[in-house]
């Protein structure tokens, strides 16, 4: 499975001084763009809707990118890629937080009663809100310290990312009125990731796989 010719390891300095800051910059571009557009009064006819759509979409995309890291590592043999998984997940939470705050402040006028009614009455809100809430424990336990402390439990907990991703896609599908093209494409990509996850976890149960993997 491993394509060794695709494997390479950039020098630690390059990762530290170029690739990591580059990733942060990439993840922050959307935020900068939105801030600039808000400043330039260029968020469109319905600025609140633009903020909601863009932050929601960015969060979902980052979540999907974070899930791509492991398969990408396995296919290309580049374990250093794993360094990028945590920032991707954290930025996904960051945009989900803005998404939620925009909803809370502008759509629901910071009124708890409206929010609770919305969560109860509208399935897409129920699902989206659940995804957001599930991201909180993952964010809290994302530090190295917590990872060490939770040991085996950590991986199990962080497999919730798949559940969150599924909920986010259901959230998007449920708000779609008629044109499901976008929701379907996210769904298709997510399905590929799930298939990979299932296959790889079946394989990791097989003893012979353990032998080969211990050779690295």
């Amino acid at each position: 499975m491993k394509k060794q010719y695709l494997a390479f390891r950039p020098p630690a300095k390059v990762i530290h001084w170029a690739l990591r800051p580059g990733l942060h910059l990439l993840c922050l571009i959307t935020l900068f763009e939105l801030l600039y557009r808000a400043y330039a009064d260029n968020l469109g006819t319905n600025p609140v809707e633009t903020l909601t759509h863009v932050t929601g979409e960015t969060s979902l995309r980052l979540l999907i990118f974070s899930l791509f890291i492991t398969p990408l590592n396995k296919f290309t043999g580049n374990p250093w890629l794993v360094l990028f998984r945590r920032p991707l997940g954290l930025y996904a939470f960051f945009y989900a937080l803005i998404h939620f705050l925009v909803y809370l402040i502008f759509d629901q006028s910071l009124t708890l009663a409206y929010v609770l009614e919305d969560i109860a009455d509208r399935p897409y809100i129920t699902v989206g809100f659940s995804a957001f809430v599930l991201m909180i424990p993952l964010t809290i336990t994302s530090t190295k310290k917590m990872r060490r402390r939770l040991a085996k439990q950590w991986q199990r907990l962080h497999n919730l990312t798949y559940v969150i991703n599924l909920l986010a896609i259901v959230h998007l599908t449920w708000i779609t009125r008629a044109d499901y093209g976008e929701a379907l494409s996210y769904g298709a990509i997510f399905l590929l990731l799930v298939i990979y996850k299932v296959i790889s976890s079946i394989k990791s149960f097989r003893p012979e796989h353990k032998v080969t993997s211990s050779r690295i």
Binding site: T45, N46, D107, D121, R122
Partner: peptide, 11 residues
């Protein structure tokens, strides 16, 4: 099921 109709955003 998608939008509360109690309130609206005037563009």
């Amino acid at each position: 099921p998608r939008w509360s109709q109690a309130r609206e955003r005037r563009i």
